[in-house]
Design a protein around this nucleic acid. Sequence first.
DNA 1: GTCTATATGTAGATAGAC
DNA 2: GTCTATCTACATATAGAC
Lengths: 224, 224
Amino acid sequence: MAANTRQKLLDAAESLFSQQGITTTPLRQITELAGANLAAVNYHFGSKLGLAREVLRRRLDELNSERLKRLDQLEAQDDKPATLDQLLEALIEPALIMSRDDALGGMRFVRLLARAYAENDRELHRFLREHYSHVMRRFARAMSQALPEMDAANLRWHLDFVIGALTYAMADFTGHFSHMNQIHIDAKTIAQHLVRFAAAGLSAADAAAAPSTPTGTARTLLGG
Amino acid sequence: MAANTRQKLLDAAESLFSQQGITTTPLRQITELAGANLAAVNYHFGSKLGLAREVLRRRLDELNSERLKRLDQLEAQDDKPATLDQLLEALIEPALIMSRDDALGGMRFVRLLARAYAENDRELHRFLREHYSHVMRRFARAMSQALPEMDAANLRWHLDFVIGALTYAMADFTGHFSHMNQIHIDAKTIAQHLVRFAAAGLSAADAAAAPSTPTGTARTLLGG
DNA sequence: GTCTATATGTAGATAGAC
DNA sequence: GTCTATCTACATATAGAC
């Protein structure tokens, strides 16, 4: 049962990596959970890094193809261009509802992703960049139509704010900032809140970037 | 020169931990950079964890006392309560302008903080919680006056979005999402953008939480 | 306080039988 | 494909001389 062992190793590694981080998780713990032999990792994946890469690749491909599918649908209706809300939904929701069976599966994956970023392994970073950046570029281009005043650089690092809010808050590293797992809100609700939060933030940035804005439309919303 | 060695170890550890992570950085590398002996770490800090704790404590105390100082000032002027923008500035700016000499020093610290969260060490997490949560609680309480419609839980995990955007974007784990170090924007400018982003997002969440809101004030800003 | 030398544990990887 | 046994390297921590 070659494929079976391979799958078990991937599942065990994903679970442990997301809880403990990649470098911190020993191979022996993975093989024990998978019910496999230590040498099987090197046989199937060449090295620990090879295993980590494959764990991430599985999910990233799934996540990105879902995001791009939604983006394609939005761009197909070319009589009316996609709204910022719709684009943000296409970016955020797939990250949170990836797992059919487990409502928290998506969050586990996002946590894994956050941990992968925190690792200092250069090869791992290059690998993630290759599997990620083209998606972000497409979304940035689509959003620039809904945010006409922001230039490319400005939009790109405001998108960092969005990705940061998504990654960090969902990752719930310590459980003391975020109380989501206690309250047990479902992923879709969280996505809606984050979409609204991000849309308002991006719109305010766009309004502020406009040269001839009277005082800044969004700022008057605040308790000033 | 006991104090000297101690300081050198702390500085070297802070630099290396922020670049490579805590568990991934060997003590030997720290002592080499500090020009100290391996055994000095255990003499001065008891263990590697003790060293990591002290590295974080230095900066956290500095950061939190600066944040609380600003919050105190805002609350002292009790004829008019602090605006959301002012509160967010008090929360965000100190994280980015902590280092006098180096404009990027603040970011290096935030990156270290993000890495510390990614570590799975329980004692380290408990330590961070003890040095952090009371500050967040005070800010949450102050903000709840500027955001009257949100309940405590709602506000708390929307603040997670803010902290996430701050931490993750500033940390610049991989350098491919964020291009800040290339563009070289100064910390204060970034803080201003993040304050506006967060203020708009929180205001939108507050408006949406209001039971009798017509359609949601902030939503009409978007391209709907 | 600072050093050398070392104890002790555990990591990832592999050789080779089955 | 899967196993046992083991190699090699490096980690933290400490004992004890100076």
